[in-house]
């Protein structure tokens, strides 16, 4: 994934497809979390309020499934894009500029923790930091478990043609606990880390605009900067 200069001092960090998919997954996931927990905690006042807005339990369930299809389609579109990127554009899916996790990331986790405890310097991140990779892989893999268990719950009659009945219970448990983990982290940790911490406050707009400034790269992704910084002559300010 090449780092193109879109405007002066602005490097393309996310392609239009990735921006679009992120918006779809963001909207879909927020909606899925809200409708899903409204279904599970149907007795709560807020859940009833949301259910009322969407036309009762049936509307809630319909919305949940609609958003699920949309979100899963976004994940699938991304996988197709990866195939296209690898096979047609002959791009690299592994290596320092990619989402592929490496040994450096494991070292960075500990180095970063060490920095937080004032036991060492901040690790020099490349294009994607370890938490960004974690966020990415959590969604990419997690959506499949959510999708498959969701399908079992959506079409239990079909799945029990060849699965025992208690698999529906297990699918529900997996769906529930993964939803709890995902919502607890993606609704809280992800916005804090990506937007609210002092280093990036008030927001890191790169996922929406697709652009990241040289300054931000120097600050947050020095290893990337080492690789892509313009020659001395054209460095500008």
């Amino acid at each position: 994934m090449s780092e193109r200069e879109l405007e002066k001092g602005q490097v393309e960090r996310f392609s239009v497809l990735n921006r679009l998919l992120h918006v779809l997954v963001m909207v879909g996931f927020l909606g899925l979390g809200i409708t899903g927990f409204s279904l599970f905690f149907g007795g709560a006042w807020w859940a009833r309020a949301i259910a009322w807005c969407l036309g009762g339990a049936a509307g809630l369930a319909w919305t949940h499934r609609f958003l699920a299809v949309m979100t899963y389609a976004a994940v699938m579109a991304h996988l197709i894009w990866l195939l296209y990127y690898k096979l047609v554009l002959k791009g690299r899916l592994t290596g320092p500029g990619t989402m592929f996790p490496g040994w450096t990331d494991v070292k960075n986790v500990f180095a970063h923790l060490g920095w937080a405890l004032d036991k060492g310097p901040m690790p020099r991140f490349d294009r994607f930091t370890w938490w960004e990779k974690m966020d990415y892989w959590a969604v990419l893999l997690g959506m499949h478990t959510m999708g498959i268990t969701g399908l079992v719950l959506w079409f239990p009659e079909w799945f029990t043609q060849w699965l025992p009945g208690y698999f529906i219970n297990l699918a529900l448990l997996l769906h529930l606990f993964e939803a709890i983990i995902a919502v607890a982290i993606k609704f809280v940790v992800h916005p804090i880390v990506a937007h609210l911490r002092p280093e990036v406050w008030p927001a890191d707009t790169s996922i929406f605009t697709g652009r990241m400034s040289h300054q931000r790269i120097q600050q947050g992704h020095p290893a990337l900067w080492e690789r892509i910084k313009p020659g001395e002559g054209e460095a500008g300010s």
């Binding site: 879109l6 393309e12 392609s15 239009v16 497809l17 921006r19 679009l20 605009t209 697709g210």
Partner: peptide
């Protein structure tokens, strides 16, 4: 495509 869509997005 990528440059055109970027302009449109912007």
């Amino acid at each position: 495509v990528s440059r055109g869509s970027d302009q449109l997005w912007k």
